[in-house]
Design a protein around this nucleic acid. Structure first.
Lengths: 211, 211
DNA sequence: TAGATTGTTAATCGATTAACAATC
DNA sequence: TAGATTGTTAATCGATTAACAATC
């Protein structure tokens, strides 16, 4: 493909555009200009137009953007127009909470939760079966799982990540507080809660907020 | 203060430096050069030196950086050298999981969990009392709470955020999927899980990873 | 057609990397 | 002292903003 590489900064803004457009759509608004959208979000109109034009011309001069159309197009770009199959590894508090979270409406379907505690074998959360770790490889292959959510203790994550990579996982959503080392074709998206909290801490520690 | 404003990009990297230095320290290593650290992390030596020099000269020519000293200094910059008092609002799965998470070792002490379900009144999680929402204002003021963790449904977050702002909260750690509108002196740090998952989805949706 | 607003090029701003003199 | 490595200035690269011609 002759596509220009899209910058990380742009990709990071896409879900936010998607969210705002979804709300605007729910409010029954049919069209919007970059100027109006700029007012609602904290982004310049110029940036909105630049961002969108990385993917094509979705607007029309003199009119603006059709909300429904733009919403759907960004959904396609983000890949949320199709269903991604997902498993959660680690049935602790966090895994449990994520299993109860309704990601289905955004196109992410949780197929199983993997745990090591034998007493949980055969149980289920919100209809999602809890399975044992020795069934992992077979399940991932058979069910064609794309995404694994890692909510295990730090000490066990790397071993499990390796197993998942070996059986062809496409992406790891990593909640453990360490950087995973995987092949280039496996996507890693980190949620480092402690890092987030520390940034918060920095911002209240001296009056950096008001400079 | 005549301090130069530190960029967001730098602040975002600080917790990661802190984490790596903590590990290096645990391995009993006493000193490290920007070049060596650059090898371990995915950052140029030049960037490490630039980042650190935003806050002062922590190293020594010909020697490098003393690991323990640098670790402590970054801890001070991040404000994790002192204890921050915190409450969790929303006793659902997520609030529950966060209450069980040991943030204490990073300097964040959870003082209470607030919920609306009367049947939880008087119970506790890991020794942290569950309290009712009508006790919120008094508790925040009396206990001098700095940070509120928001794990409530979208529809209720804004009202609660307003109440917290009114009684002098300093920071909101927001897990709800919306952007909060608060005064400039209140820090908001967002954890938008759906956004994170969508970025992941984007990256596996077409072979953007290998361009 | 006239007005509005895009798509896109050019200008600016900021962040990263490279280079090197200062110095331990 | 010689070698190593910082702190810092200069060069490069990339991202954001401004401007405007194209066009609906």
């Amino acid at each position: 493909m002759e596509e220009r590489e899209i910058s990380k900064a742009v990709i990071k803004r896409l879900p936010r555009y998607y969210r705002y457009l979804g709300e605007i759509l729910n409010n029954g608004i049919e069209r919007i200009s970059s100027g109006e959208l700029s007012g609602k979000m904290q982004v310049t109109a110029s940036q909105i137009r630049q961002d969108l034009n990385n993917f094509g011309g979705f607007g029309q001069q003199g009119y603006g953007y059709n909300v429904k159309y733009l919403y759907d197009e960004i959904g396609k770009i983000l890949g949320v127009n199709r269903v991604h199959s997902m498993i959660i590894i680690g049935g602790g508090n966090f895994g449990h909470a994520l299993a109860n979270y309704d990601f289905e409406k955004n196109g992410f379907s949780t197929k199983a939760i993997f745990d090591i505690r034998p007493e949980l074998n055969g149980t289920s959360i919100r209809g999602i079966p809890v399975m044992m770790m020795d069934e992992l490889e077979e399940f991932v292959k058979k069910e064609d799982i794309e995404i694994a959510v890692l909510t295990l203790p730090k000490s066990k994550v790397e071993e499990v990540a390796d197993r998942l990579v070996k059986c062809g996982i496409r992406a790891l959503w990593n909640f453990a507080h360490l950087d995973l080392d995987v092949p280039d074709d496996v996507v890693v998206e980190n949620v480092h809660l402690v890092d987030s909290l520390m940034q918060l801490s920095y911002r209240i520690s001296e009056d950096n907020s008001e400079e």
